[in-house]
Design a protein around this nucleic acid. Structure first.
Lengths: 297, 297
DNA sequence: ATATCTATTTGACTTTAGTCAAAGGTCGCG
DNA sequence: CGCGACCTTTGACTAAAGTCAAATAGATAT
């Protein structure tokens, strides 16, 4: 990938400094005025309940430290602690009514502060800011997402395929049967490839490549988690799959799509795929596409 | 001013949370790995030397706390402390060679981290991100700038007029004589008005209004500090001045500009001003403008 | 059933961050 | 010259944040 120009690094760091100094501090300030910041953050992070283990990794805290904070909050009547129904090693933590009130109040304050800040802008400027922030967030998220080749049987691969199956089962009028997914061995090792995209460690998208016939690969199960859509992830997966296909000596890749997935069809067209006649007997497919690859360098 | 919609508040807070959690922490992390964060920040803030007093107000630290940190850094050979040449109450602090090396190293690390993050994006995406961040920063700065009516003799007003005079003295081929500035009493109380824009407490722009003849006001000395240009501040000042003029019952405001200030002329035209014949004997003026005001509500 | 791993709790710390007040120079002004 | 304002230093604290290791109890694999 091309090197990052210092101009972009400088601009990014300038924003970073400005934002954390001027805005970022705000949140902590409002959060921390009633109790130690650590406790306030913890309270805030609980949401609709979580395990201590989860919070520990989310907030990056020491186990002992967290245990003590949870105890303090419990003593203050802010949270309820209980054992996990199935795994008695885990402790579940959830907000009590009083805890929810406090979180709500914190939210109210932070929102009021944000509104106070935005008040200095005209309506069109606010809209411009909102859009710029949305763009920045989208790109920053995208920048942090990694796309890796994994074994088709890896847990993250299975998690994605489960998400995919559940997703399209809902979208296809005729439903979708999980047994129609690719088998792990079809997309592992020499037979094919499976890519998983991860955001902060969590799998959020996938795509599979398998050998269809000599020189021809097939792309399947390109899926993006609902929370990670509209970031341009599908294109990035497609790109990874095509590179992999070219590296494996395929000169052509094909894929099919369901009639209901019109956005997907538009994306394939935009990525250089052209519609071809039916090449398989996939009962879900209504459109078939093909793309000729330039050979790997 | 119109109320801030919850949509904008939500979007802003979403970004805020995401950014501070994911990116903002980065800088502190890299800063704080060799020494306590407070010390590291202090070291960073010294730059090309400063007084303890200045650092204290910039970083919002307790005097005793700062004094101790400075002593620690001195003991480590990172800074040199000395008395202010003229005011022996102040202590000056500056980096030693070792201190400069450390600051440089911290900068290198933070830049490397930023570059690593941006690496996940394509070149056009990086450009898009840079632009979105620049837009966001511009608008956030603007949102934090207040415009207030002050007495023409107030220190902030004088500071702005000094900046204005120095600025145009450099830009006008014939120079500029400070005695041609408005006198404080012309723009105070019933006689006129003086507005100062402040960013984080510091005056960054100004504009004056004085009575020219019955029903006619004159706008003078609209100036924006070089660091605060391209934010749309001049328009905001003009707006404040016009409102004030309307509130005082003026139906028309006039102003003149120097031939060299072509951007200003363009702005006045864009804000509804039309060029008129010479109305005064200002030796610096080459263009005269006028705007009819709608009466105050 | 045994060993191994995992999640949490507890005790015993340390470091960092920050506050408050008293005290000692230094400056500017009347 | 004397007074008040200003900046800094020092002593004496406190609270928050975080670390480390041992102990405990439940889950999992063999």
């Amino acid at each position: 990938m091309e090197p990052v120009s210092t101009e972009h690094v400088t601009a990014f760091r300038r924003f970073n400094r400005y934002f954390t100094r001027r805005i970022g501090v705000l949140d902590d300030h409002y959060l921390g005025q009633d109790r130690p910041l650590g406790e306030a953050r913890l309270l805030f992070e609980i949401g609709d309940g979580a395990s201590l283990r989860e919070l520990r990794s989310r907030l990056g805290l020491d186990a002992g430290y967290l245990s003590r904070m949870a105890k303090t909050l419990q003593a203050q009547g802010m949270v309820r602690l209980s054992a996990h129904p199935r795994d008695h090693r885990l402790r579940m933590i959830e907000l009590t009514a009083a805890g929810r009130v406090e979180v709500k109040e914190q939210n109210r304050r932070a929102s009021a502060a944000a509104a106070g800040l935005l008040e200095g802008l005209s309506a069109p400027q606010r809209a411009e800011l909102t859009e710029a922030l949305a763009t920045a967030r989208r790109l920053l998220r995208l920048a942090g997402i990694t796309v890796d080749l994994v074994d088709g049987a890896a847990p993250d691969a299975r998690a994605c395929l489960d998400g995919y199956a559940a997703d399209i089962d809902e979208r296809f009028p005729e439903g979708f049967d999980k047994s129609d997914l690719v088998r792990p061995q079809e997309v592992s090792g020499d037979a094919g490839a499976f890519f998983v995209a991860r955001e902060e460690g969590r799998p959020v998208a996938c795509g599979a490549l398998r050998r269809l016939e000599p020189g021809v690969g097939e792309i399947r199960h390109v899926w993006v988690h609902p929370d990670a859509r509209r970031l341009g992830l599908a294109r990035r997966l497609l790109d990874a799959l095509e590179r992999e296909a070219a590296a494996r000596g395929f000169t052509v890749v094909r894929l099919d799509t369901h009639a209901a997935l019109t956005e997907a069809q538009a994306m394939y067209r935009a990525c250089g795929y052209t519609e071809i006649p039916r090449y398989d007997d996939n009962v879900y497919a209504a459109h078939w596409f093909e793309k000729r690859l330039s050979p790997a360098p």
